[in-house]
Design a protein around this nucleic acid. Structure first.
Lengths: 239, 239
DNA sequence: CGTACGTTTGACCAAACTCAACAATAGTGG
DNA sequence: CCACTATTGTTGAGTTTGGTCAAACGTACG
């Protein structure tokens, strides 16, 4: 919900941050609906399809044998997932909220790609974007809990519409924790810590507001951003 | 050194785990040599070329503003990097050991791709593989120090030739630390801990040996593998 | 063979995890 | 529409892991 753009359905389409598959391949693929918490893709299933989120929020995740869950990414309206899988899906995908998903046969896409240089470029770019996103996440994971949370919020701002300074958190604390490699307790504590220090305001479980003077406009490379709030850095030595 | 396969030079080529660019585009691109520690690609430079490691070891990395370094990946003989970058390289690349690198103009490759469906497929697969690798790293980083080290060793085994149970570690402890988001002290401690518990044997700074009954054959999805050694799991609750 | 550098080791400390009790939310049914 | 309740989140106390600082050590290279 919330981010229910429903772009890219029959129209020419156009994505907030571009790259919808619909834009390059309009009217192929079928749209499916999933209720919240329903599994969309099974881990290790043969990777024969590519998915584009039309509305709702989805995540890809993996269950580790120690019982932990790691979320590899959140996907909002307009995002594409499943493209990176070659043989089998290394991660499962499940709906966080109820969601509409457009499903493409991978075969169709690659066929299209080999006949159309523009499509090839788009697919590569899509993959590159995904890789960049993951690389950012990677960078954030070697940092303190607060840095991770700040990174998470910054990423949300960048990828989902911050309507009126209001940021939607469709996912649970557990989801956030599994994404950032933290525990729910630490996520909760850190969020409230940020609130206490005047960076954000927590509005119920599924929404936060940014307290003015921070962010609001600038949101670029994901780093700096909350820079001014950060109290103590976790040490760090010179290069 | 060590992994100096020198496949893919003029021959038809063929990679241990496939996908050398030479295999799809033989005899285009030029070979360059770099001494250890030399920068190969500058971070944020325009992404106009693609690189294939002929011999030696290379890493891609990013410097954070707090002075820390994050290594995004290690690349051994036959591996390709730089393909995923669209506009600019988000990470720098530098030689860990002296290395020979084959450099391709990206333009040449994409041109080739648009005329040859097989090449298209290979390029997409190569990028996808990179993404999958990154995803694995991501998954491993939300784990304990020991798990990360085990993952690291498992990845090495999978990607570089475990000659006679001997695994080459061309990179320094600092490199490993920067890859796994740990400190050199923790890397050192953990390695020696694994040795004390009979999983590995440390042979000088740049080589370790696997103690029998572990690994040796099975090396697949990266998970399990050292499963039997793990003493205490870091708790973890049921799914 | 010597030395510089990378590595190991120890003592100490702080950040994050665990366990457990409690509170708030949001969705449900009356 | 409101009250109810299961679910989700919060908070506190104690523990553990990994980071920090500093000093000793060994390797690998010239």
């Amino acid at each position: 919900m919330c981010v229910a753009d429903r772009v890219a359905l029959g129209t020419g389409t156009m994505r907030i941050q571009g790259q919808s598959i619909g834009a390059i391949a309009p009217r192929i693929g079928i749209v499916r609906s999933y209720p919240a918490k329903r599994e969309i893709v099974h881990q290790n299933a043969p990777a024969s399809r590519v998915y584009e989120v039309i509305s709702g929020t989805v995540c890809t995740c993996k269950f580790l044998k120690n019982g932990r869950r790691q979320i590899a990414g959140f996907y909002f309206s307009g995002d594409v997932f499943g493209l990176e899988s070659v043989d089998r899906y290394p991660v499962a995908a499940e709906a966080i909220t109820k969601a509409q998903i457009r499903v493409f046969k991978k075969q169709t896409l690659t066929a299209l790609a080999s006949s159309n240089r523009e499509v090839t470029h788009r697919l590569l770019a899509l993959t590159a974007r995904e890789l960049a996103r993951q690389q950012n996440l990677l960078l954030s994971l070697s940092r303190s809990a607060e840095d991770r949370i700040v990174y998470f919020i910054a990423e949300l701002i960048q990828r989902a519409p911050p309507k009126e300074g209001r940021i939607a958190l469709p996912m649970t604390r557990q989801d956030i924790a599994d994404y950032l490699g933290l525990t729910i307790e630490t996520v909760s504590r850190t969020l409230h810590d940020l609130e206490r220090r005047g960076a954000i305001e927590i509005r119920g479980y599924h929404s936060i507001a940014l307290r003015n003077q921070f962010v609001e406009g600038r949101v670029e490379g994901l780093p700096d951003l909350f820079e001014r709030i950060r109290g103590r850095q976790p040490k760090a030595k010179a290069a």
